[in-house]
Design a protein around this nucleic acid. Structure first.
Lengths: 352, 352
DNA sequence: CTGAAAGCGCTAACAC
DNA sequence: GTGTTAGCGCTTTCAG
């Protein structure tokens, strides 16, 4: 009834308990013949090693934790893909992945979790530019790696989206379509100031890319709501009537922009091009027209994060892995050739 | 350097190792005085019980697994909320949640995982009407509970969305707005036939609700793409020109419907009302107009699933918990009073 | 109310 | 090549 133990396997195969262990782990040479007897005994009994016992004895649980903040705004499709990508990679490597949702500042809680010695290492998601959790982890001395990175990742391993490259790609694409007045729509200033890496890095990337292309960067912060998007867009067009294209980091606001444009009599992409940055296909396909977007390779990032961490756990020479993955440009319907701003009908403001 | 053990705590508190254990678990009365000495010793040393050792000795790992299929179409916001809701609930109950992404038919793989005796129980997500995993779990005898349910949940615990109620609510809302010709837009027939519970139950619920309201149910299957949505909608309106409202289970297709309606010169909700069933706010807010939707209480479901499972693990009298949660109607912009179908301009078909 | 000691199922010396 | 055995850090009888 209850699960067979290694002892029972040993008895059935007429060998010592330890021989079974060695055969199982390949920690020591075992003759072909006994190995066969053992593996037969194992499958006869339907033996599976007891994970806890193995972990206790070997001091390696083969469990890693995925640390993600219980974000106020909730996670999206991109984050879900991190998780599933990470879980699948862990499984393929023979590891278990436990989920540790923790407040970003719940550092003592994190400490408690780590001290239980349940996990061999930690993968941190949604890393802030300045992140207490990272400080704690290195102080405790747990192996860890990150999806995302703090402002100075120095000697830490990570896999992250290449936000600079992503904005550069977006600008390049729009420039190639003939746009010369391109605006960048960010998240809120609060998020930016809170050290939300995506927001900060993409903003910097855009400024740089625009300048390199000989353009004057125009940027706006915007709350993560459609309404905020409408308002910011109307203000933007008033201030810069010759803007013909928008690169947006802010999906919710993008919807508002599209609404405001439609209300004002503009067609997308005829009168205005929109490129959505760091946007999942799921979201990009929900709008009309569907969004031309730069989509992160999220599952890949999750996988990389896990593999990097496990690498650290299994290799003896701890090697640094720092990977930046570009987003992929998926052309849908929201960006097109630049119109002549002068010939474009004026936006008929809908609001007060 | 290395983590303090219970032995060290005992020494420091001048008690036996076992006394520390009893004090920690409350398994046996301990005098106030020694309890105090012990807890002081613990905090002095920063002691945390070793999860693996505890699990091995007690035969209860305090780890539960979340089983989710590596779906072809990927998971959405709703599923992500299950996961975070479950993870948070587990943590609050002092459990760890491990992620087991498995093929729906990878039953032997699941068996291996379970036999490792790593987890005390399993929470199954995305349960099919006929689901091999459920069969296996009860056969093995692992405690489990479900988010979702098979066709005959008999004596099994679950928490699920009340699809019947959800469609009833949608129909009631539309009827109240004056609609009499309401169509139901389902997922593909393949998914339906594959025993995708949401699809089957919502369809049944709609038929029933429509009949109860004295309406003739009109239903359509549709692939999960905008294009399919367009085509199905055009066919639908041709076959039933007097349809004024649509209740949709299929978010991708809904986008197509809205596009086709717009292309044909119809305004939403003036010419056509749309209610999105079992739709997260995240998605509902991406369209124009934003979708009036019945939104599942996903985090709540995750929480319930975990609590039900842990209840099974900790109570000695295994009690059956079967919960159906209704969705919440969130009124946005996509549904309004019924137009007079006769006065509505004919759809100008855009396709061939 | 407290202590001593026998495991839980496995790994990894240490022997041969 | 294989066997023997001492733990890993805890829970839980069994004795007092």
């Amino acid at each position: 009834m209850s699960a067979p133990t290694m002892q029972e396997v040993a008895k059935r195969a007429n060998v010592a308990l330890s021989t079974v262990s060695y055969a199982l782990n390949g920690t020591r040479p075992v003759s072909e013949e006994t190995r066969l007897r053992i593996s037969r005994a194992m499958s006869d009994l339907g033996y599976q090693p007891h994970a806890l016992a193995r972990g206790l004895a070997s001091k390696r649980s083969h469990i890693i934790a995925l640390l993600f903040p219980a974000l106020p705004r909730g996670l999206g499709a991109t984050e879900l893909e991190f998780v599933t990508g990470a879980a699948e990679a862990a499984q393929r490597c023979g590891y278990h992945l436990v989920l540790w949702p923790t407040e970003i500042h719940g550092v003592s809680e994190l400490q408690q979790l780590v001290r239980q010695s349940l996990v061999d290492g930690v993968l941190v998601m949604e890393v802030r530019l300045s992140d207490d959790r990272i400080e704690l982890l290195r102080q405790i001395g747990v192996p860890f790696s990150m999806i995302g990175r703090p402002s100075d990742p120095a000697d830490m391993s990570f896999a992250d989206i290449d936000f600079e490259q992503t904005t550069r790609d977006a600008v390049a694409y729009l420039v190639q379509l003939g746009h010369r007045q391109i605006a960048f729509l960010n998240h809120s200033e609060e998020l930016f100031n809170a050290g939300y890496g995506a927001s900060v890095r993409a903003a910097a990337g855009f400024e740089q890319a625009a300048r390199d292309a000989g353009l004057t960067p125009i940027t706006r912060f915007c709350g993560d709501t459609a309404l905020a998007g409408q308002e910011v867009f109307e203000e933007l067009i008033r201030a810069h009537p010759d803007v013909t294209a928008l690169a947006s980091m802010n999906e919710r606001a993008t919807v508002g922009v599209m609404q405001a444009a439609a209300t004002g009599g503009w067609k997308i992409p005829d009168d205005l091009s929109v490129v959505s940055l760091v946007s999942s296909a799921r979201v990009a396909e929900m709008t009309l027209p569907p969004l031309t977007a730069l989509t992160p390779q999220s599952a890949e990032l999750g996988r990389l994060g896990v593999e990097t961490l496990i690498g650290q756990l299994e290799e003896d020479h701890i090697e640094l892995v720092q990977r930046l993955l570009p987003c992929r440009l998926v052309i849908r319907g929201s960006a097109g050739p630049s119109p002549d701003p002068a010939r474009r009908s004026p936006l008929t403001a809908a609001s007060d």
